[in-house]
């Protein structure tokens, strides 16, 4: 916390980022919105010890230890966005709950693709969900993070951390511009990933539909909270078994033989071995 060099770097980054402001780029009939938070992220990366060396290894460690707390201010603000819209959110709650099934779309495309490009059991970890913290914890508990499934889920997790925010922001503006979705539906879908992915997507949408900005943010935040609750159970009961099944089917299609059976981590095994 007393790393004033880090705070000074961040202060400069945000002033520059906010000075630049939103940039709308017209692409065909739609537009992509670039947000100050995206420049702040990219400039933050650029200060890395391995690039411009503006921030030191120590700054990097402090920044990563502070992240959890800094997110709380945003979460407080989200709470106050959800409150005033609560009647509207309750009215829309069936959509908020059921859209978790959208995750199954991931598996239908993701698992066969992963097998097709040559991943083995990594496919199950990688494509069973959008791979945020709860999913990583789940895979870690079931298969161990050092196993193939663990490598898969960690790979997508790291990708999400590095490119997820910008990816979600751009994806939301493209979807709003080119696909026939209502902004509310896109706002709800924004909640599937981490809080920063949701914020980037919600930010892009509110820049495109300023008159609905508060509702969009409220739906995104509500969906993000709900995903945190029901998403994990969806993964355990539906997504993982389905991914496993589809993996066997895809594997047989590509290689013509059945895949090797999964190595489920069994904590009791080691103990038995010692007893003998």
């Amino acid at each position: 916390m007393k790393d004033f060099r880090l705070h000074l770097i961040v202060l400069i980054l945000i002033v520059v980022a906010e000075k630049i402001g939103n940039i709308s780029i017209t692409v065909g009939v739609g537009k992509i919105v670039l947000l100050p938070m995206m420049y702040a992220l990219l400039m933050g990366v650029a200060t890395a010890p391995r690039f411009t060396k503006i921030s030191s290894e120590k700054n990097v460690r402090t920044a990563s230890s502070l992240l959890g707390v800094t997110l709380m201010l945003l979460m407080a603000r989200y709470g106050t966005l959800v409150g005033p819209s609560l009647p509207k959110i309750l009215a829309a709650s069936p959509a908020l709950i059921l859209q978790e099934f959208g995750n199954l779309g991931t598996i239908i495309i993701g698992v066969p693709l992963a097998v097709f490009v040559g991943l083995k059991r990594e496919a199950i970890g990688a494509a069973h969900s959008v791979a945020r913290e709860p999913n990583v914890a789940l895979i870690g508990e079931r298969f161990g993070l050092d196993g193939a499934e663990g490598r898969g889920v960690m790979g997508v997790y790291i990708c999400g951390t590095v490119i997820g925010t910008i990816f979600f922001g751009l994806m939301a503006s493209l979807a709003a511009a080119y696909l026939p979705f209502h902004p509310y539906a896109l706002a709800m879908a924004a909640g599937v990933g981490s809080a920063s992915m949701m914020t980037a997507a919600v930010g892009s949408l509110s820049a495109m539909f300023p008159q609905m900005a508060d509702q969009i943010a409220a739906f995104g935040a509500a969906s993000n909270m709900l995903s945190g609750l029901d998403g994990l159970y969806m993964s355990i009961w539906m997504a993982l078994p389905f991914a496993e099944w589809l993996y066997r089917k895809s594997y047989r299609m590509k290689y013509g033989v059945d895949p090797e059976p999964p190595v489920v981590r069994n904590l009791e095994e080691g103990k038995e071995g010692e007893a003998k």
Binding site: G44, V60, S196
Partner: peptide
């Protein structure tokens, strides 16, 4: 503004990401 709340968070996140790069 909620977008302005995100800017510092993502600036910190950007610096922190270097660990994962």
């Amino acid at each position: 503004g909620f977008m302005q709340l995100c800017t510092p968070i993502l600036a910190y996140a950007g610096v922190a990401i270097c660990k994962d790069l």
